[in-house]
């Protein structure tokens, strides 16, 4: 499995990740190399093995539906790049 420069551009777009034009080729090479390493997994038959998502096979703990957090909006927004009237500002989406 080899990734092309176009594949890398497509993945970068999916991840909304800007990458320099000059770096695309080296990412394609690195990722292809990593995928080659992954081929080792193909040699092992794991068809009847249950996938393991969590080391202790834990299930999600539930809690009572009570309010436990206090409102920290001002503190959280103090470190935001741009806010106004308690809202986060981003470039205009709808004209």
């Amino acid at each position: 499995m080899t990734l092309t420069a176009d594949d890398v551009r497509k993945i970068a777009h999916l991840a909304r990740l800007g990458i320099q034009q000059d770096d695309v080729e080296s990412y394609a090479q690195d990722l292809s190399g990593i995928l080659a390493l992954m081929q080792q997994m193909g040699e092992t038959n794991a068809d009847n093995v249950a996938p393991m998502a969590h080391p202790l096979d834990q299930s999600q703990r539930l809690r009572a539906d009570n309010v436990t957090e206090v409102n920290n909006r001002d503190n959280f927004q103090a470190i935001a790049p741009q806010t106004e009237a308690g809202l986060y500002l981003v470039p205009k989406v709808i004209e």
Partner: peptide, 28 residues
């Protein structure tokens, strides 16, 4: 310039090469 540009460039300029490599690998 727009929301996509904000996401893409902030992440592109904020992350280093190894982090980007792993985000690309994981996204793929």
């Amino acid at each position: 310039q727009d929301l996509t540009d904000l996401f893409t460039r902030s992440r592109g300029e904020g992350f280093g090469k190894e982090v980007k490599r792993r985000i690309l690998m994981g996204t793929y």
